[in-house]
């Protein structure tokens, strides 16, 4: 049977476009705002809001542990979660390449639907465009999301103070290595899935326990080291972590050895760096570890007064060196 594919007609705004929306998108995202199919979604926003915007160009679009759809939802949710904002509404614009199999689009939509349901975020509006074959790589997704700010004051680098603890919610680098393997097939066998996941449920559990989060960032492009360098610069304090305490899966370490990569600079799509007060550190760790998304959470370091604006690494043999933000080469199309 010939596979149904996206053609330029699907982007013209006429019947094929309507068909795509009504038979492929709508059935998977059942919410009143979307169903109205107005030019804009009419929404009620009970409170102070956070608003984020992202674009996803990951290649390949399907990889172990996820796909571009799950990534788009997770990425947007995590940008909100990093500000302790409860995700409410999502918009998604799809740039489809002529020739994309509709079956693959359906799989991506199904995955997005599932991830939205897990998180409690509703896809309320969006767009579809079709570009000619060769002008886009199968599928790109641009998303925006709105959330309600649930912590007052909002997490912010200015809240960080000397003595605070630095936590990471799980092992680093899974996403980048999984995608790299899916793209290049370097290794004969690699049992590794992307860590791609929406983290709001995990962050929610911290807030529900009454914990005040000082600052959070998700280590996507540039990885853990880049995020720490940014937080250090923004807070004008020193963030120091210990090499031996950073969780890294042995397969990721082995892949890094083989490929000459540094796990501290690899992109994650389902991890959060969380800074809390020294007193709350143990409690935060316990709460994180009690949740499947934070099962391997760890306290990896502390905030110091000096040297100002620097992220540092305390090495296995007891040395100390800077963690500079990622410069130079970066693997393209990772998220």
């Amino acid at each position: 049977m010939k596979k149904e594919i996206i053609t330029l007609a699907h982007g013209s705004g006429g019947k094929p476009t309507q068909d795509l929306i009504e038979n492929h998108i709508l059935p998977r995202f059942g919410n009143p705002a979307l169903k109205q199919l107005l030019d804009s979604a009419l929404l009620e926003c009970p409170g102070r809001i956070a608003f984020t915007s992202d674009a996803f160009t990951v290649r390949p679009i399907f990889f172990p542990g996820g796909d571009i759809g799950k990534l788009a939802v997770s990425g947007s949710v995590n940008d909100l979660a990093a500000l302790a904002a409860e995700p409410l509404f999502l918009s998604a614009s799809f740039i489809l390449e002529e020739g994309l199999e509709i079956g693959e689009l359906d799989e991506v939509l199904e995955s997005m639907s599932k991830t939205c349901a897990e998180t409690g975020i509703a896809l309320v509006t969006g767009d579809t465009k079709v570009v000619e074959k060769g002008a886009g790589d199968k599928l790109y997704i641009a998303s925006s999301a709105i959330g309600i700010r649930r912590q007052n004051p909002d997490p912010h680098p200015s809240l960080i103070s000397p003595g605070d603890a630095i936590l990471i919610t799980g092992p680093v680098g899974d996403h980048e290595i999984a995608v790299l393997q899916a793209r290049e097939h370097f290794f004969r066998e690699l049992e590794l899935e992307s860590d791609c996941a929406p983290l709001w449920p995990l962050i929610k559990s911290l807030l529900a326990a009454g914990l005040k989060v000082k600052a959070m960032r998700d280590p996507t492009r540039g990885g853990l080291a880049t995020v720490l360098a940014e937080l250090a610069r923004a807070s004008r304090l020193c963030l120091q972590i210990e090499e031996s305490r950073v969780p890294v899966k042995s397969s990721v370490l082995a892949a890094c050895e083989m490929l000459g990569l540094d796990p501290l600079y690899l992109a994650c799509e389902g991890r959060m760096v969380i800074i809390v007060s020294e007193e709350s550190a143990q409690e935060a760790l316990t709460i994180l570890r009690a949740h499947p998304l934070g099962a391997q959470a760890a306290i990896i370091g502390e905030v110091l007064e000096k040297p100002e604006g620097r992220a540092l690494l305390s090495t296995r043999i007891g040395g100390r060196r800077i963690l500079a933000p990622l410069s130079g080469e970066q693997l393209p199309r990772i998220c």
Partner: peptide, 11 residues
């Protein structure tokens, strides 16, 4: 040969 390290296999 197929070699193994940390759950990863390489030819």
């Amino acid at each position: 040969a197929l070699v193994e390290s940390g759950g990863l296999r390489q030819k």
